[in-house]
Amino acid sequence: MIHTSTPTASERVKLLKKRSWFIKRVRHFFDALGYLEVDTPCLTRYPASEVYIDPICAYPFSQNNPYFLVTSPEYYMKRLLLNGSGAIYQIGSVFRRFEKGKMHSPEFTMLEWYAPAYSYQKIMQETADFLKFTLEVSKVEFMSFANCFKEFIDIDILGKDRGKVNIQLSDKITQIDKSAKVPALDFHEKLDYLMSFYIQPKLGKNLPIILYDFLIEPGTLAKPNKDDMTAARFEAYYHGIEISNGFLELTSHLKITKSLLKANEVRKQKKFLLWPIDDDFLQEMKNELSPTAGVALGIDRLLALTMGKEHINQVRNFSLN
């Protein structure tokens, strides 16, 4: 267990310098493109409505009045966009309950940026440019999410016969995972399972790869594509690790509201804890956002990849245990 061994003082200083240098490079990239660096609070009255992300509670004012640590600066940054901030980026800590693992920590450093008026193509290209710059690679590959499933497991996940696709996915899981007993999974969970254990480890072996047109998922504020099955959402992977997630933002107040409610509905079905919906955010979203693209990226993972480290605690100045 490399990550639990205590680094020496000189290793700590080396890491401090490396992180500082790396984050300066990140700033340099966005400053040069005319983005404004912003900082929004870590505390929030309401957590983001996400099906699979849980916030950490905090009690800044009184014991009976829970606030939350942000799981991402998304809602705050969108409120800045509405105030006319123009293109913005932020580097800061975000917090997610119960996330721990080689590439997970309950607190991690996130880069998030928003580009008003960007097209889907343009935001993906900019993400690729950023990856080329920070990972020092010559090229980034692209593949659609559906093609990725065709390529790796030979299943057309957009097939018209949904029942058949569902059965094919189940068969695939049993076929590739004979030893591991699999829990009961719904359609999206099956995709998540195959992605996590079978496809993802093979993604971006040589060059970073951007998968685009993910299926529409409740709670994700990504704009649906015309096919009504996929959304204008993409993720970047390198050496089997997911480093980034971006999309064209939903701008309609009604659709955003529906998406947040749907996320909570799904959480209810899955018997997850239910969190209040962010009314402050929804109120402000009534003045609809102009078309905007946004990307979130895990700085610790990116740094771990550039430094060849296997655990993100190895690239954070302090690690929680």
Binding site: G101, H104, L185, D192, S196, E217, E242
Partner: peptide, 14 residues
């Protein structure tokens, strides 16, 4: 014990 989560989806513990 290995914690795995795809981008935005269901997290698994293997």
């Amino acid at each position: 014990v290995e914690f795995v989560r795809p981008g935005k989806g269901q997290a698994f513990t293997r």
